[in-house]
């Protein structure tokens, strides 16, 4: 559904919601996850982006998530539960060299609908700031759709400017949920 925008602004195909997660062990996971705001125009995206902390400046344990309005940034959401994620894992030193660039490119891919006809399969993206290594992931809604998932992966890898020697993997949420992190198998790679 095309969201109507105020006169003079450039409407996005979708309204997007930015979420922030801050790890407070005294609270439940859900209580630590907060909706920051929603936007539906190019102008409002930049107004938001320029007023929030860069991902590289967040403390460990924090996440940003950008999801289409109506989809919550968790496996359990109906639009996510049959899906998975293209996962970018970064070395510690990349926080200061590439993390913010990769995250901004990810956001631009999402709001600009960069995946062509398969953009409708995109649910959102998540950046995890962690001491052991940061992660960025693009979440899609259907892990069994090989054509859609691999198209999104190829375009995403190209947009990040990753070398052809770098391999990125797609993991189904159903597999991630039942295995500990590094043991999750890749369903697809590009």
């Amino acid at each position: 559904v095309l969201v109507a925008a105020p006169l003079g602004k450039h409407p996005l195909q979708h309204r997007w919601a930015l979420w922030f997660f801050k790890n407070d062990k005294s609270k439940t996971w859900q209580a630590n996850l907060r909706l920051v705001t929603k936007f539906s125009t190019v102008e409002d995206f930049w107004a938001l982006y320029s007023h929030i902390q860069l991902a590289s400046k967040l403390t460990s344990g924090c996440d940003y998530s950008l999801f289409k309005d109506g989809i919550e940034p968790m496996w359990e959401d109906n639009r996510n539960k049959c899906g998975g994620r293209w996962l970018i894992t970064l070395a510690k030193q990349q926080r200061h060299t590439e993390l913010d660039h990769f995250w901004l490119e990810t956001l631009l891919c999402l709001i600009g609908e960069s995946f062509g006809e398969y953009s409708s399969e995109v649910c959102g993206a998540v950046i995890n700031i962690r001491a052991k290594g940061d992660k960025i992931a693009v979440w899609t809604c259907e892990a069994e759709d090989r054509d859609g998932v691999t198209h999104i992966g190829r375009v995403y890898k190209e947009r990040l400017g990753l070398s052809s020697k770098v391999v990125i993997g797609y993991q189904a949420h159903a597999d991630t949920a039942t295995k500990s992190g590094s043991l999750t198998k890749n369903k697809f790679v590009v």
């Binding site: 095309l2 409407p11 190019v42 930049w46 107004a47 320029s50 490119e105 600009g112």
Partner: peptide, 20 residues
């Protein structure tokens, strides 16, 4: 009509709003 924007178009708006 689908609203698609390439990265250069989107980036063109960045510094207008960064200064507001």
């Amino acid at each position: 009509e689908k609203k698609r924007y390439d990265r250069e178009f989107l980036l063109g708006f960045q510094f207008i709003f960064a200064s507001m």
